[in-house]
Amino acid sequence: MEQGTLEFLWELAPKFIAGTPHSAKLGIEFLSIDIGRATLRLPYSHKLSGNAKSRVVHGGVVTALLDQASGLAAVSAFNPISAVATLNLSIDYMRAATPGKTIIGQASSYKVTRDIAFIRGIAHDGDETDPIAISQATFMHTGDIQNYKLETQEATP
């Protein structure tokens, strides 16, 4: 069962990220997925900066990356896997992202109930012990993912 779920997740997740218009616009890429875990990356781009002079990536971009990674971790945390809606997202920003560096967004579930997944996330640019931001989010179960998959495939030409 778990093996089948993992294979399905590895097939679904890259399409899920590529098929999300906002993630595609920012340049978010899929890296890996496991049950209740997801890792994404976001290469540096000038259009993501919050200040044209300092070139530092805007906090909102880090928010989007952590929201996306956390959402994916929540999808895979439910058994069976489920479509989700974000209820709350809380982020502490520790430092500015280094201009030019790719940002990694990692998220993992630490508790799943029937309806809610509790997810922790971290954004860093190479060194996990020197985080850019730390997040904590809750997601609600919103329905069967199998239907989602079929509709996604129909929606993607």
Partner: peptide
């Protein structure tokens, strides 16, 4: 809409 876009 993307939660990240609304957040940003």
């Amino acid at each position: 809409l993307h939660g990240g876009a609304i957040g940003g």
